[in-house]
Structure formats: structure tokens, C-alpha cells
Simulated scan of single mutants.
Amino acid sequence: MKILKHKFKLFLAITLGFSSLIIYPNLVTAQSNTQEDDFPAAPDTGTPTGTSTPGGSRPQKNCPQTKLPLRALVANNGKDFTVSEYPNLLFNVPYASNQIRNIEFALKDPAEMKTVYRTAIKLTGKAGIVKVSIPQQAKYALKANKDYRWNLILYCVGNKTDEPDQNLMGWIRRVPMTSQLKSQKYQSYIQNNIWYDGIHLLAENYFANPNNSKLKADWNDLSKSLKWDNLDKNGFAETVLVEPRE
């Protein structure tokens, strides 16, 4: 059994996928990786809370001090839902490219003990908000009413081990579209706990129109309510889409 378990983990570790990744304001590229971890069971209802701020072992050793933390832009309140088969996840990365050795993202299906999607991220410029878009291919599609776990792990320059300096973990569940959500307005998404879609849509609108007083007020109110602390100072600049590589 130990041999079979070892072979199964090895198979998961070498099964990679590559997505469309967007960084604001900098380009993100995809690389392969081999990091794996356990698959805890999800609850029967709702989504469990995760670690939306770092749970790493030693960021103080290799990572420089920053005013803002590495952070997942989610509510982390047990109601982090999406209506999209291919959702977008946002992360505040406070480090410049010359401070990071590697960032890795994985989306996992705990019920079936498998990695749905996996990629590595390489920053090429300044700190910013990174958007990870699940590729729009059937093999990556989220099934309705099912919990998925994601991980974002970061290795800073100076780390020469396989142990990450910082580790974020969260959950996402796709729920069916309802009549209230067909307008695809961020207010409706947020009011109905569709946090991934609501946060993503508001961020896209606000940073595309930073002088819009309504969008700015809504973004600041959301940031305060979720204790994000002035993430808008990073700003979104030109979007660069990196095509997935098989």
C-alpha cells in the first residue's frame, strides 16, 4: 500500500496544467512545479474557512518586510461561492519579481483525491494584484454544488529548500445561476455570497475606471469590511494575458 500511495502522489506531482494568468500591472508566466500536499475533506454544506493571509513557516527569514501581506482577495466566511465553471481568483502579491523565487497555484478536488488544475507563476516586474483564471477547457470545469480547495504557495529569494515561505489555502464552490444573478452586477453577486465573482467584477470595473466615485467608494467599503487595508494603492494597470502552455 505504501508503494501504491507513493506512486499515486508521484503521478499527481507530475500532472501539470497551465492557465491564462493576469497580473496587474505586471506580466505573469507559467512554469512547471512538483509541490504536493494533503486533501482534507470538505464539509457537507457551505465552504470551510481557509488561510487567506500567510500561514507560512518562515517569511521573516527569506521574504522582505512589506506594508501589505500576501493575501487572497476572498471573504473567507464560509460562503465563498462562484457561478462560473471557470472562475477567477485574485491575490495581492506584495513582492517584486526580484524578491520571489517562485509562486505556485493548485486547484484540488478533495472528494476525488485529485488535482484539477496546477500551475506555477513567475512575476516579471513590480508587486501587484494577480488574477488566476481557470482555463476554459472541459477538464478544468468546476462541477456545481461541489467544494474545491485551492493553494497558493510562495518561495522568496534565498529559500533553497522545498518548504515554502508562505502558504495560502481556501475553498470555492460553484452554485447554480439564479434570476437575481443574471444581471451579472457585482452588487448582486456580493449580496448573494457569490464572493469570487463579485470581488473580481468590482475589481475589474474599479481599476479600469479609478476616477469613478461610485466604484471607488464601493471598492473602499468592500476593502474595509473585509479588512484588506488600502489594496487599491497597488493599482491595476494594463492587462497582459499569457496563453496556457500544454
Rank of each mutant, 00 (worst) to 15 (best):
M1L: 08
K2T: 01
I3S: 07
F11T: 10
I14H: 05
T15G: 02
T15I: 08
T15S: 08
F18I: 04
S19I: 05
N26D: 15
L27F: 11
V28G: 01
Q31L: 13
D38A: 14
T45W: 13
G55K: 14
S57D: 06
Q60G: 11
K61L: 15
K61W: 09
P64L: 04
K67R: 12
L73K: 05
K79F: 11
D80F: 04
D80E: 08
P87D: 06
N88P: 00
L89I: 15
L90I: 11
V93C: 04
A96D: 09
N102G: 03
N102C: 12
P110S: 04
E112S: 13
R118H: 03
T119V: 09
K122E: 05
K126E: 15
V130T: 06
S133R: 13
I134V: 15
P135S: 08
Y140E: 07
A141P: 05
A144G: 08
K146T: 10
Y148E: 06
L152Y: 03
G158Q: 11
T161I: 01
D162T: 14
Q166R: 03
L168N: 11
M169I: 15
I172N: 00
R173N: 09
Q180S: 14
K182N: 07
S183V: 14
Q184I: 06
S188R: 07
N193H: 13
D197S: 00
G198K: 04
Y206G: 00
P210Q: 06
N211C: 01
K214E: 12
D221Q: 15
N230K: 10
K233N: 11
N234H: 12
A237W: 02
